[in-house]
Design a binder for these strands. Sequence first.
DNA 1: GCGACAG
DNA 2: ATCTTGTCGC
Length: 234
Amino acid sequence: MRTASILGDWPTTEAQARAIQDELRTRVVLDEPGPEPGTGHVTGVDVAYDDERDLVAAAAVVLDAATLELVEEATAVGRISFPYVPGLLAFREIPTVLAALDTLGADPGTVVCDGYGRAHPRRFGLASHLGVLTGLPSIGVAKNPFTFSYEEPGASRGSFSPLLAGDEEVGRALRTRDGVKPVFVSVGHRVSLDTACAHTLRLTPRYRIPESTRRADALCRRALREAAASGRAD
DNA sequence: GCGACAG
DNA sequence: ATCTTGTCGC
């Protein structure tokens, strides 16, 4: 029901989308440390696309933050709501992600997005946007540095270096596994950068990418396959 | 003006 | 994101 009202005035043009980001950005909360890593729940969200069939599938996977065991998972399928434009990714992913989150019975805890939060041209990436719309603490963990610069962090897990937009630190390049390419962590909503990195390290005991994101990725791909096979969307 | 550019 | 087989390595 909430999703319907949000889709009601979903932007059509890039200019409208940017204006929405500029307005919602003022509601981001950056002065809370956020939930203690390793306590409560952590929820991974991800989205998969079938542009041919105009289908999008989202998944939300709730994990126990201490054990990383599955608590609950949800999916939603819909139509593509916006083209991919660098800097406007949220408008492509958020409607279906919200639909999936809405069906969860468990408290999502901290939401982990596959993308950026503050590390964004207007400091309002997917994780920030999702955080503001849901009120939930959120962080972004991306696989690429986008347009930002960074110096290679030390080779061991836990090493990090600032992710920079000019001389402004908008996130961190964080090494989650020894000798493996870093991930790019930024704050979404109601979580500090230190806490966001601590969460990310707890979520990567085995792989470079957070367990939450890996599970959400697998789940939304499966949901997309099934939706394409049965030919439904809603 | 041209190229780069989260997923 | 997605198109795609085998293959090198732990």
